[in-house]
C-alpha cells in the first residue's frame, strides 16, 4: 500500500515536471524542432539576450511590480488598520468589495478596468499604457495585502494604540512604535504576494495595457501566437532556474527563522 502511494506520487510529480523539463532540454537544441534533438547549442540564449523587446518588457515588468507592490503595501496596510477599527456593518461591506478582485475571474476584473479606462481615455488625456497598467496592478494587489495584514490584528490588543497616545505619543509615532511592529509579518507576506502576482499577471495586464508598455507575460503571449521559437524555451529555462533559486532562499530563511524562534527544526 505504501509503495503504491509512492508510485502514485511519483507519477503526479512526473506529470507536473515532464513538460517543463522537455522545454528546458529543447532550449539547447540546435534545430527549431521540438521533437528531435539534433545537437547542443546556446544560440537561443544568445538570441534571447539580444532580443530588445524581451529585455525591455522584462525591465518594464520589474518596474511595475516594484512600484505596484510598494504602493499597494502602503495603501493596503493603512486600509487594514482602518477597516479593523470599523463597526461591523461597514466593515463587512468594505471586505466584501475588497474580496471582489480575488473571487471574480481575472478576465472580469480586466474587462471592468478596461471599460473604466476607456471612459477616461475618451474624455481626458489618459492613454492605455504604463499608467493604466500600474493602476490595474495596484488594484488587484491591494486585496492580497489587506488579507495578509488583517489577521495580525486579532493577536494585538486594540487599546495599545490609544494607550501610547495617552502616554504622549503623536498618532504617527504611536502607529510606528506600537501598531507597525505587531503587524509587520503580515505586511511583509502581503508585499511579497503582491510582488509575485504583479510579476506573473497576464490576463488583467492584457486588457489594460496599450501598445507603448508591454510586460513580460504579454511579450511571451505574442511570441507563442507567432511561430514556435526555441527562444521561449530558453526564457522558460531561465525563469525556472530563477524560481528554484528564490524558493530555496525563501525556505532557507524560513527554516532559520523557525530555529531561531525555538519552534524546533523544520
Amino acid at each position: 500500500m505504501k509503495k503504491l502511494g509512492k508510485i502514485y506520487l511519483a507519477l503526479v510529480l512526473l506529470f507536473l515536471y515532464v513538460p517543463i523539463f522537455v522545454l528546458i532540454v529543447f532550449s539547447f537544441n540546435e534545430s527549431k524542432s521540438s521533437s528531435v534533438f539534433s545537437g547542443f547549442t546556446l544560440d537561443w540564449y544568445k538570441r534571447l539576450f539580444h532580443n530588445r523587446i524581451i529585455i525591455s518588457s522584462l525591465v518594464n515588468t520589474m518596474i511595475i511590480a516594484v512600484i505596484a507592490s510598494i504602493v499597494s503595501t502602503v495603501l493596503g496596510t493603512f486600509a487594514a488598520i482602518g477597516i479593523n477599527s470599523m463597526r461591523k456593518v461597514p466593515r463587512a461591506v468594505v471586505m466584501n468589495v475588497t474580496n471582489m478582485p480575488i473571487i471574480n475571474p481575472e478576465i472580469v476584473t480586466g474587462v471592468s478596468l478596461m471599460l473604466l479606462f476607456s471612459f477616461f481615455a475618451a474624455r481626458m488625456t489618459l492613454e492605455f499604457g504604463f499608467v493604466t497598467l500600474l493602476i490595474a496592478h495596484i488594484t488587484f494587489d491591494v486585496p492580497y495585502v489587506i488579507l495578509n495584514v488583517m489577521p495580525k490584528f486579532n493577536q494585538m490588543d486594540p487599546h495599545l494604540y490609544e494607550a501610547a497616545q495617552d502616554l504622549g505619543c503623536s498618532p504617527f509615532k504611536a502607529f510606528r512604535k506600537v501598531v507597525l511592529p505587531e503587524i509587520m509579518p503580515g505586511v511583509v507576506s502581503g508585499f511579497l504576494m503582491a510582488f509575485t502576482y504583479s510579476l506573473d499577471d497576464f490576463v488583467i495586464s492584457y486588457f489594460t495595457t496599450g501598445s507603448t508598455s508591454q510586460t513580460l507575460p504579454i511579450t511571451i503571449y505574442s511570441m507563442t501566437r507567432r511561430k514556435v521559437s526555441p527562444e521561449i524555451n530558453a526564457l522558460s529555462t531561465l525563469i525556472f532556474i530563477a524560481v528554484v533559486l528564490v524558493l530555496i532562499v525563501k525556505n532557507g530563511i524560513q527554516n532559520r527563522a523557525f530555529k531561531r524562534s525555538g519552534m524546533g527544526g523544520n
Binding site: 517543463i20 522545454l23 513580460l216 507575460p217 526564457l235 522558460s236 524560481v243 528564490v246
Partner: peptide, 11 residues
C-alpha cells in the same frame, strides 16, 4: 511559480 503561459506553451 512558472508563468502560466509558459506552462501552457509546454503542452
Amino acid at each position: 511559480w512558472m508563468n502560466f503561459l509558459l506552462r501552457t506553451y509546454a503542452w
